[in-house]
Computed example of a mutant assay.
Amino acid sequence: MGNACSDGCFGMLASKKVSQLRACKQDLKKFIDSKNCHPIMVRLAWHDSGTYDQRIKNFPERGGANGAIRFAGEMNFGANAGLDKAKGFLDEFAKKYPEALSSGRIAACSALYIGAHETLLSCVAVMASSRYGRVAVTSDSECVKSASREGFSGNAGLPDAEPPFGCGAPTAAQHLRNVFTKKMGFTDQEIVALSGAHTIGRAFKERSGACPFGYGEQAASKYTKGDCIVRKDGSKGVGMVGGASWTKNWLTFDNSYFKDYKLSYEDDSLLWFKTDEALHTDPEFKKYFDLYAKDQDAFFKDYAKAHKKLSELGSKFEPEGGIKI
């Protein structure tokens, strides 16, 4: 009788969690669309996962998608400048949906945009196959320590845009492989596919220092001003005004990062760093770069797989198999 009661109570709790996750997912989708904050939400999820180091086996020392970025130990890295804004957005959802785990909601946000975008039919699988229930770290003391980043400590374990590279690599291509392959376990194909997320990215002078365009209308590039039309549906809205993007329509997720990269060499309002250049000059990267430039569906399919892998790096699930909604 006691076991039956225990099982029944567990079932009720699990049902409540799933119900809140579903409701949270729908609310997040509406919120992100209304705020046009897709890029910073993608960046938050990326940077939370980007602490992962496959050379370290134990949780949470290995880093990864565990929600640690909400603590100062991660947020205060220069590479994470500005992400406190995205954290603030999600804190409100945490209050409304306390059963939706912190790390789960962070890792879900970038997938929400990709999965919801009407043209990305093949990428809907990112949301459909995503698992929830990641165990979140509970304090700053559980964040990855700088000393454990081994050659990547200066930039939160993430790639540098330009040389000199923190890992000591002589080329941008080697730097990308040091970060994404040696540290995080991605293949060349996955590196190129994931780089396509720059399609909806922006950089700001006040954050990275690698971009001449900054906050506000006066410091914006010609593609990031308040009156720009950059959404696929043609609606107005750019979210926070300013900065510079890699693509002209930087709130439209497509393959323009690959297809139109030459525009970045001709237009000073568009970004293109040494790590971007490496993707179409290194022979192994170039194979996939050229494929995605020609075949958008191939990019969507490969991005979906790579993004799912990214969203689960270093994760520990509770229950063990995670929760699907």
Rank of each mutant, 00 (worst) to 15 (best):
K308E: 08
G2E: 08
A304I: 04
H198L: 10
G209Q: 13
K236M: 15
K16Y: 13
A100W: 01
A173S: 03
I200R: 06
K305I: 04
G73S: 13
K145G: 14
D7M: 14
A72E: 06
I323K: 05
P163S: 11
T181P: 15
K248V: 12
Q218I: 01
H38Y: 11
N255I: 01
P98M: 07
P163I: 06
R70E: 06
T119A: 11
Y303G: 08
S102M: 07
S264V: 07
H47S: 01
D140R: 15
Q26R: 07
P39H: 07
G133Y: 02
L310K: 14
D27I: 04
R55P: 14
G321K: 03
E277Q: 14
M12V: 12
G154E: 06
M1H: 12
A193V: 04
M127W: 14
S146N: 09
D290W: 08
S245R: 12
G234E: 12
A304Q: 05
S148T: 11
K232A: 07
C5D: 11
G88S: 10
K16W: 12
K287N: 01
G166S: 11
S139I: 15
G237K: 05
K309G: 06
I200S: 08
N155I: 01
C109M: 03
P39V: 02
K25R: 07
A278I: 12
D267C: 03
F289V: 12
A94I: 02
G82I: 00
G78D: 06
D188M: 15
L13S: 13
Y113S: 01
K308F: 10
N178C: 08
T138W: 05
L21K: 07
C5S: 13
G50N: 08
I69Y: 02
G88Q: 05
K259Y: 01
K85R: 08
Q189V: 11
D7E: 14
P39E: 01
F213C: 01
K183Q: 15
E266N: 09
S122F: 09
L83K: 03
M41F: 00
L251K: 14
G242S: 14
N80V: 04
D260Y: 04
E99D: 11
A244M: 10
Y52N: 04
F77Q: 04
P163K: 08
G209D: 12
Q20L: 11
H175E: 09
G63L: 05
L120A: 05
D268M: 03
F317T: 10
D276W: 09
F289I: 12
E312V: 01
